[in-house]
């Protein structure tokens, strides 16, 4: 069962869905929404579809989702035959995945909002968002540092889950908001491991790893 994604090219939350779909080789239909400058996500037509007035929106025959984490879970459960991205057969990892999906929403609220302010002039309290963003990145850095001591490459174990995808987007995009990765070596390593995944997809501000660049280019 495929789906339609109401999408904005510069949205980190839309990118999460595009990224997982690409990694899992899922074809879908894109419907671009003029978020900027048109604010089409606040029009009556769009609000009729999604009363929250947010992007992305995922539509399929019997599903309408307006939360990117929910979309990642839905896509993984539908299309991931390995059951590793949404690890339902491992209580420990499944619970951690839910926990880090929750954390990803904090990244949207801090880095995501700061990025919209820095890049597209959306009004915001930049100083507060900057503090919050830094706190969030430090928490992530500490966790990934501990994971690496345990010999684990990803957020919940030795394999990536939907939580890695969810946390990847705005962590990787923090330079767009003026927050460089220099102070976060564990995050840098983890971002790099995700960029090296088979089927990885770029967006503006997130480039391919040099090591995989030519393979991907040749394949496209």
């Amino acid at each position: 069962m495929s789906f339609t994604l109401h999408d904005y090219v510069l949205s980190g939350n839309c990118y999460k869905v595009r990224l997982l779909a690409q990694i899992l080789g899922v074809a879908y239909t894109v419907k671009p929404v003029d978020f900027h400058p048109g604010k089409a996500h606040k029009t009556p037509e769009f609000l009729a579809l999604n009363p929250h007035g947010t992007l992305p929106v995922l539509e399929s025959d019997n599903t309408l989702l307006t939360d990117s984490s929910a979309m990642l879970v839905w896509i993984a459960q539908q299309f991931d035959t390995t059951h590793t991205w949404w690890p339902t057969n491992d209580a420990h990892r499944l619970a951690l995945t839910v926990q880090w999906l929750g954390f990803s929403a904090k990244l949207t609220e801090s880095i995501g909002q700061l990025r919209l302010h820095t890049m597209l002039n959306r009004p915001a309290d930049a100083a507060t968002l900057n503090t919050l963003s830094t706190e969030n990145l430090r928490e992530l850095e500490n966790h990934l540092c501990e994971q690496s001591i345990r010999g684990l490459a990803f957020l919940t174990g030795d394999q990536p889950t939907v939580a890695d995808i969810a946390c990847f987007a705005y962590s990787a995009l923090s330079p767009d908001a003026g927050i460089e990765h220099t102070l976060y070596p564990a995050i840098r390593g983890w971002l790099h491991r995700i960029r090296c995944l088979e089927g990885f997809l770029t967006m503006p501000g997130i480039y391919e790893a040099h090591e995989t660049r030519n393979e991907h280019t040749a394949a496209s």
Binding site: Y8, V9, L10, P32, V33, D34, H36, P37, G38, A40, M119, P175, D176, P204, G205
Partner: peptide, 17 residues
Amino acid sequence: QAELIQFQQLIFLQDRS
């Protein structure tokens, strides 16, 4: 119009970083 705008934004935001 949304497609045309987003194509251009894709390009320009690659330049921005």
